[in-house]
């Protein structure tokens, strides 16, 4: 790893004062699961690393039935999934955290880091830039190895998939992400936090260069049943190939309204309003769940190697709906 200057501030004000106005010059260290491997691979070369783990107020998780759940950005995935309230009220979050099947990563990896981790696209990780282009600006993905790339939102120039485990559930639950910068705090809807970059210099989230994520605010579910289902190649350590999170307001077996968000299929977590409308007003059955899955992928566009992901996304939606209807909150 290249040498860097290290700071470990104890307040969020100190932390953001150490950030600057250029991506990549300074990086924020929380769990380090992604950042340190990016630095070892020389994909990220910060001159300064700011450890935010000494900032006490970024830790901890609180719940109140009236205001919902507040998750400090530094809560680890393990802390999240072990929390009884999360398991009971927000099983979609616990299931998503459980999908990170490495105890070593769950112990250090944080919820803020899950949102801010960089794409797993192998061209990006191999040093070809966020948009994976050759020197003439042509995408390496379209005629290259794209079996793990996007099937939705893939009209370019970005073809990577958003790697966050928690994002689909957070969006389905209507969560907000609280950011902090030199001008103070601001809240962004979880669905607005992720953006599709148009250039290699942009980042794939709405943070400004001098802001950090401080907490996640998840409203009360109001009894909505929620679940996440991930489809993966193996049960052990791996990223999902497709995932879906759903939050269903139900009256008996009848769905009154639904939020359905796909993960790992597009450069951003991908809400599917057509499928939500299709499901609303229907009684959950295996057939209805399956047809909702079909409605979720109608806009999918296959690349040369990733057509199989369309079926996996469809199945993820079906199983997430059935899982939510059976159990979940």
């Amino acid at each position: 790893m290249r040498a860097f200057e290290y700071a470990s501030p104890t307040t969020k004000e100190q932390a953001v004062a150490l950030l600057n106005n250029q991506w990549g010059e300074t990086e924020v260290l929380a769990g380090g699961m992604d950042l340190l491997s990016l630095m070892k691979d020389d994909v990220t070369r910060p001159g300064r690393v700011i450890n935010i783990k000494e900032i006490k107020e970024l830790h901890g998780l609180q719940y109140s039935p009236s205001t919902g759940l507040r998750i400090g950005a530094l809560v680890t995935l393990q802390e999240l999934l072990e929390n009884e309230t999360v398991r009971k009220e927000y099983p979609s979050l616990a299931q998503a955290a459980e999908g990170v099947t490495s105890p070593q990563i769950r112990d250090l990896g944080t919820v803020g880091g899950d949102l801010c981790q960089r794409p797993r696209c192998w061209y990006f990780r191999g040093g070809f830039g966020l948009l994976a282009q050759d020197s003439s600006g042509k995408s390496l993905v379209l005629e290259g190895e794209n079996k793990y790339h996007a099937i939705l939102g893939n009209s370019g120039p970005a073809y990577f998939v958003n790697p966050s485990s928690l994002a689909p559930a957070l969006i389905a639950l209507g969560a907000k992400i609280r950011l902090f910068g030199p001008k103070g705090a601001r809240d962004v809807a979880a669905g607005q936090f992720f953006v599709t970059p148009k250039t290699n210099q942009e980042r794939e989230y709405a943070l400004k260069t001098n802001e950090i994520v401080t907490e996640l605010l998840v409203p009360p579910t109001g009894g909505a049943r929620n679940a996440t289902y991930e489809v993966r190649q193996k049960e052990a350590l791996d990223w999902p190939l497709a995932a879906a999170a759903v939050s269903l307001k139900m009256s008996g077996k009848n769905v009154t309204s639904a939020r359905i968000v796909l993960g790992h299929v597009a450069p951003v977590p991908w809400p599917v309003p057509d499928a939500e409308k299709f499901l609303a007003g229907k009684t959950v059955s295996e057939q209805v769940a399956q047809d909702t899955g079909g409605a979720a992928v109608t806009g999918a566009k296959r690349l040369s190697q990733n057509g199989y992901k369309v079926q996996l996304a469809r199945v993820a939606v079906k199983r997430a709906i059935l899982r939510a209807a059976e159990g979940g909150a």
Partner: peptide
Amino acid sequence: GRIVTSCLVLGVE
């Protein structure tokens, strides 16, 4: 009390 991959932890941490 938690298992970690020590290659992804800085000594200073």
